[in-house]
Design a protein around this nucleic acid. Sequence first.
DNA 1: GGGCAAATTTGACGAGGATCAAATTCGGGC
DNA 2: GCCCGAATTTGATCCTCGTCAAATTTGCCC
Lengths: 243, 243
Amino acid sequence: MAQQAKNETPAQCADCLVRNRAICHVLDAGALARFAASGRRRHVAAGETVQWQGDDDGVCATLTSGALKLSLVTETGEERVVGTAYPPDFIGSPFAGAASMEVTALIDSELCVFSRAAFSESLDRNRALEQELLRRTMAELERSRLDDSRLASLGAGPRVAALLADFSKRTPAGCDAGDPDAGWLRLPLSRGEIAALLDLRIETVSRELGALERAGVVQRRGRRDVRILDMAALTAAAVPQAA
Amino acid sequence: MAQQAKNETPAQCADCLVRNRAICHVLDAGALARFAASGRRRHVAAGETVQWQGDDDGVCATLTSGALKLSLVTETGEERVVGTAYPPDFIGSPFAGAASMEVTALIDSELCVFSRAAFSESLDRNRALEQELLRRTMAELERSRLDDSRLASLGAGPRVAALLADFSKRTPAGCDAGDPDAGWLRLPLSRGEIAALLDLRIETVSRELGALERAGVVQRRGRRDVRILDMAALTAAAVPQAA
DNA sequence: GGGCAAATTTGACGAGGATCAAATTCGGGC
DNA sequence: GCCCGAATTTGATCCTCGTCAAATTTGCCC
């Protein structure tokens, strides 16, 4: 059976937000047309899972907008977040067997998806594409190593501050669905998800958030809206040794 | 000027210990010969640095024997270990600019090194090589993500135990330079290096090692020799919730 | 608008490491 | 074999989170 067609439409590069930054930007017009024909644009709502751990056939896709969470479930049933993806990242393994992790949308997202077979074939046909994927994967590996090692040496406060700073940077400023007042940022994650992402406990996240507010660095409204009052202080709090 | 020739000899695949597991195993005889001609076999002594952070031209190499440490130095002058490599791993970036990290031999090692330019050219000439590198890099990225996330949730004891278990598995049993009695394992790392690798403090590593000895799991001799008395207990200690 | 269940916040407390400070022990060089 | 400096071990204490337990707050459905 085909995928649920309701969330999918033909891939359409013309209005793709990342068309000159995504992996496919290395293709010429003709090759791009063929490549696009093998993929489909797919919308996934916040919280929706794109791929389940253990799926027989992994998804290959370019994230064109939104944000994804890569996670897995441990033997003990806990969720462990192993990474995140932002446009124009490519996700998926064209080679491996069963999918080793779960991919979930943190916020409403758009993907340009390909079946593993189709993607793999495109890789064979387009050397430039393969080269670009190699380049990106190596860069990602390096980034992942650096980030993870840095994260490991950071305390709870800096982690939360860094996440907040990151979100505010990644989010097309102020244009978050219908907030009358600009500057407010709607967190795409619950406290529990933030905790899993940062490898902390819910209570600790809550406390650190409270501390940032008490320090006048951010302001909160409801459970999920925050406004950064002092970005300098926030980034300062994201590095060790801060007050 | 050429590299210090004393530690280098022509690449010689015939007696390469990893010839059917390394990245080059995908090449046919002719291609392999050309590839080998562009590289050199290099011996690096324990502690010697193969590449410095910031080097203009990064090294590309296959590790044929030994073990390497990938690290970087933070702004604050501390060392941060971001990964390790064991045969038949490939290290280096054929693309990036200045080297982003330092590569140091943990124990005496043999590398099959290529200049970035030469390696890059081989990649262009041999599609199979490029494909294999992509495959491995993706696998390595996944492994890195999984490992790091697991490590983050482990306490000090399990980390030390896991490291010990890992070393004993990676080391061609007993054949460690001239120990009369078999079973003894010479740690290639000082306490400080172990601490950096596991993101712990020297004192903590020392205490955990002491605890393992007191528990009868390992035996120590001098500063660097250990013998695993109870591998089952050691691997048990490497997972959470242990006694 | 009131009532609820779930999410979040707050508080008390404890355990695991980090830190600071010695005391030892190794390994070499002479 | 003796001496010395560096690495390691040990001890005491502090601090940061994780845990367990409420007390609140929010969002939402009637």
